[in-house]
């Protein structure tokens, strides 16, 4: 009895030490993970008037101010326009991709038709070509449709949505787990495929719809390759990523670093909040996707 409780006590102690070690590790990890964001935030508040906007070798600004944010909002650049473009692209891409993915997933998961295997295998093979291979071709295709430069915003939406059917894996995997018996019962009651799709499957697929829409919504915020290739030379068609990466990469923009940081914060905050808010669905999606492959 005595022995046992001593044992228990030593185990407790061991566990406590172990936990303390774990906490230390977690705190360290958190510091590393948050450091760049803190740095970004601090720099965005650096005073442009007294410390200029270039890069510096200290973390905490000597003077805090809203200079950089003011610069973005007072119309010296097209920042609001770029931001608006990105929001528009993100919303439409999100809606379009979700619709496409749902259609493809339902057809592949629930229906058996001639060419189904061929289609899946063919798309799998297509996916093995590197994405930027076709940059020049996409540009000229869109140009034929008048969707470059001035028309780049709808053009980018079109490109992102058009091929999105190929990204059906996660969603189809989810549909596969919905019991077939439900569909069969509904069909016995005389419901058409379309009715089952709209009234049965879609309501059940809420988590995966949110996941798909969320992932699709986040991607355009980071698109500076395709967007700059298609919109080049037309400032009012840029998205935030295209416009702001120039502030870092191009020598024409001296002293824009803190402005880049401020813009970066403005981009990151809403996307991060949305992500955090819908995190549950994201986790469900990636976990399901990982297991299905």
């Amino acid at each position: 009895m005595n022995n046992k409780s001593e044992n228990f006590a030593s185990m407790k102690r061991k566990q406590r030490i172990g936990n303390a070690f774990c906490y230390a590790l977690l705190v360290l990890i958190s510091v590393i993970w948050l450091f760049p964001f803190v740095g970004l935030l601090l720099q965005s508040f650096r005073s442009y008037a007294t410390e200029y906007g270039g890069m510096v070798n200290y973390l905490v600004p000597k003077n805090f101010s809203l200079d950089n944010y003011r610069f973005l909002f007072t119309g010296e650049t097209n920042f609001l326009r770029w931001y608006g473009n990105t929001v528009v692209i993100a919303i439409f891409v999100s809606i379009g991709q979700t619709i496409f993915v749902l259609c493809v997933s339902y057809a592949l998961s629930r229906m058996r038709f001639k060419g189904r295997d061929f289609l899946m295998r063919f798309w799998l093979i297509l996916g093995m070509f590197p994405g930027f291979l076709t940059l020049i071709c996409l540009y000229f295709l869109l140009k034929q449709m008048g969707l470059t430069q001035a028309g780049a915003v709808p053009g980018l939406i079109l490109v992102a949505v058009a091929s999105s059917g190929m990204g059906y894996y996660v969603c189809k995997g989810y549909f596969d787990t919905l019991p077939m018996a439900l569909d069969e019962a509904a069909r016995l009651d005389g419901a058409s495929r379309a009715r089952i799709f709209f009234e049965l499957t879609i309501p059940l697929a809420k988590p995966i719809i949110i996941y798909t829409a969320l992932v699709a919504f986040m991607a355009p915020w980071c698109d500076f390759i395709m967007a700059s290739y298609i919109a080049f030379g037309h400032d009012s068609s840029y998205n935030v990523a295209v416009a702001m990466q120039r502030w870092v990469f191009t020598n024409d923009y001296q002293g824009y670093f803190t402005r880049f940081c401020a813009g970066g914060v403005l981009v990151a905050v809403p996307v991060t909040l949305l992500f955090m808010f819908l995190q549950k669905y994201y986790v469900e999606g990636v976990t399901g996707g990982a297991v299905k492959g």
């Binding site: 540009y139 030379g233 191009t250």
Partner: peptide
């Protein structure tokens, strides 16, 4: 008039002369 720096201008002109400045 569009803001396209000297380096980008040449690159963009090479990508597509017709859409260039």
């Amino acid at each position: 008039v569009e803001a396209v720096g000297e380096g980008d201008a040449a690159q963009n002109m090479l990508t597509d002369v017709e859409a260039g400045a």
